[in-house]
Amino acid sequence: MNDIIQLNLIQFSSIYLLLLVVLAVMKRAEIEQSKLLVIASIRMTIQLILAGLVLTYIFDNPHPLWTLLYIFSMIAFAFHRVLSKQPGLNRAFKIGIMISIALSGLLVILYFIGGVIGISVFNPQYTIPIGGMIIGNAMTGVSLGIKTFMTNLASDRNKIDTLLNLGVEPRKILLPYVNQALETALLPTLNSMLSMGIISLPGMMTGQILSGTLPLTAIMYQIAIMVAICTAVCLSVFLSLTFGYQSLYNHRQQIRLP
């Protein structure tokens, strides 16, 4: 196995030329998003350079505190992203989401790094990238789950009112919506497991192979991370919705939708 070819700055910069193709197509199809393309490319570049610098510093000066700080800022960012897509949630619901993402993310990271790989969870080289994948996917899952849940509730307001008036417990009215949202949030992860390895080689595996890891080692890591992601998504969405739906009714059994 060869080690990965280091990119020099000129080689690296030439990849941006491909974006001219995208720009040309956008112009031709009259998609007025060329500004977004430029901003997105610049933001991506700056954010990744920063991440690269921070990671370089942390790898050179490993300290448990840095690893912890990195993981917690990822959780905070994930939480912020979920909420920015769902304003209008009540306080208890928001707190529930934060606890759920943090709890399920940390639990799965701990099991993966400490249990399966069997090294210290403060090892930045493993914990930061793997933690990022787990928390990032949990974020997408929770976002989708909460969105599905709230949209379905809003469009079924009339049904919910009827059932309340009929003397049905709020719990019994809301639980089917919880289950349905959980299913919707899980499907993308399950579907990506179905196509994995046939349609595409996943990102982490590609990266490992490029940097010289044996393919069989790379697939083991890939399988492990997929199982970890699936668990983190399932747990975080389930906990978020379970905390969340109970915040929608009060002791007088009145359902309050935003």
Partner: peptide, 18 residues
Amino acid sequence: IDAVLLRQQLLLCGQTVY
């Protein structure tokens, strides 16, 4: 009175049919 039991006793057939 427990709100759910109250509603079962004072059944409200709302304005919008579902």
